[in-house]
Design a protein around this nucleic acid. Structure first.
Length: 201
DNA sequence: CCAACGATGGTCT
DNA sequence: GACCATCGTTGGC
């Protein structure tokens, strides 16, 4: 089954739309230890306007600068002093918006994920934004890089087995976002209804 | 199963 | 000096 990375145009979608469209695509990270791949099953949108939960809400800073760059690049930042979180820059260039990847269904490189996580159960490998970054071996080296070429890529819905079909729109659940002190109430979290691999209901 | 809590350090005011 | 887009453990059912 040939792999195809998501197009430049795919990433220019409005942020909430991109967050939904990314469900069912495949996040892949290659390191010297090998390749690890997961199917995206949960995302959150962070908007460039009217969203107090978004890092870019108060303008460009050193940390959030990647969010103001080209859509289809990465934004990886340190959360709570311990965990890296992985985002996809969205929308038109320079707006300061992104999609947080919150959970994956493990697809390939599962032994490597198990080693990195120190867990064996599949549902414990990538069921949270910090967990999936650990499982894939993503770190600060992968901040502000292009996702169409390089160590971290996103492949389209058809790049793996047929059993991983694009989720039907009516199977996508929308909820408030998780873990925010402001802006949490906005309905900008999305997940695949029947997935066992999401961070929580 | 689940709610509560502490660890931990960069970023921004 | 306050504020976190989290996680794993702990202790109670």
């Amino acid at each position: 089954m040939p792999r195809k990375v998501l197009s430049k145009q795919f990433y220019q979608k409005e942020t909430a739309e991109l967050a939904r469209a990314l469900l069912g695509t495949f996040l892949c990270c290659s390191t010297k230890q090998g390749e690890a791949i997961g199917r995206i099953v949960e995302t959150e949108a962070y908007l460039y306007q009217g969203d107090p939960g978004c890092h870019a809400h108060r303008g460009k800073t050193k940390r959030n600068a990647p969010m103001f760059g080209t859509p289809g690049r990465s934004y990886v930042y340190l959360c709570y002093g311990m965990y890296q979180l992985f985002n996809v820059v969205s929308d038109k260039s320079g707006r300061g918006a992104a999609v947080l990847i919150r959970a994956l269904e493990p697809v390939s490189g599962i032994e490597l994920m198990q080693q990195r996580r120190g867990k064996t159960r599949l549902t414990e490998l990538c069921s949270g934004p910090g967990k999936l970054v650990m499982a894939l071996g993503i770190d600060q080296q992968h901040n502000d890089i292009c996702l169409r070429e390089g160590a971290v890529k996103i492949y389209d819905h058809q790049s793996f087995a047929k059993s991983f079909a694009r989720p039907r729109a009516e199977h996508i659940i929308t909820t408030p976002r998780i873990g925010l002190s402001s802006g949490a109430e906005l309905p900008l979290r999305f997940y695949i209804r029947d997935s066992k691999f999401i961070s929580r209901k």
